[in-house]
């Protein structure tokens, strides 16, 4: 499982994360962390009044699973022109599908950290 989990696209997103970086000053932002393994990320969402996402990005540090999940999810959201509401409604299975590898219970919090950040942005 060690190598299966770290297949090429996960490593690629970990080492070259998409939509990585600080957002614009007007972006809504939230920080999420996974204290057990020390993953931490900040999400920046800039959406207009009807919820269309103008720009989205994240920054932080953490394990390959947490960083790749965030990168994969934000890339997918932008490629499919997802609205902020749609983004907020994404279930955990969506993250698992994007990762495409089985995630053990011990790594669920890593994989879902980006969803926690999205939820926190929504809550303000």
């Amino acid at each position: 499982m060690g190598s299966l989990l770290y297949r090429h696209n996960i490593l690629d997103h970990y080492q070259n994360p998409r939509h990585f970086g600080k957002g614009d000053a007007k972006a809504r932002t939230a920080e999420a962390s996974n204290p057990m393994c020390g993953d931490k990320l900040t999400l920046y969402v800039d959406a207009d009044q009807s919820g269309n996402i103008r720009a989205i990005s994240f920054e932080g540090e953490g394990c390959a699973i947490s960083m790749a999940s965030a990168s994969l999810l934000l890339e997918n959201a932008m490629e499919t022109n997802m609205s902020f509401d749609e983004l907020c409604a994404l279930p955990p299975s969506c993250v698992y599908d994007l990762l495409g590898v089985p995630i053990s219970s011990a790594r669920e919090d890593c994989a879902l950290l980006i969803l926690l950040a999205i939820k926190k942005v929504k809550q303000g």
Partner: peptide
């Protein structure tokens, strides 16, 4: 390599190490 990822690879060898703070 984040400690958690290293521990995960170790786990494939049935090696138990800890990662985190």
């Amino acid at each position: 390599i984040h400690g958690h990822d290293l521990a995960q690879v170790c786990s494939a060898y049935n090696v138990c190490i800890r990662a985190g703070h």
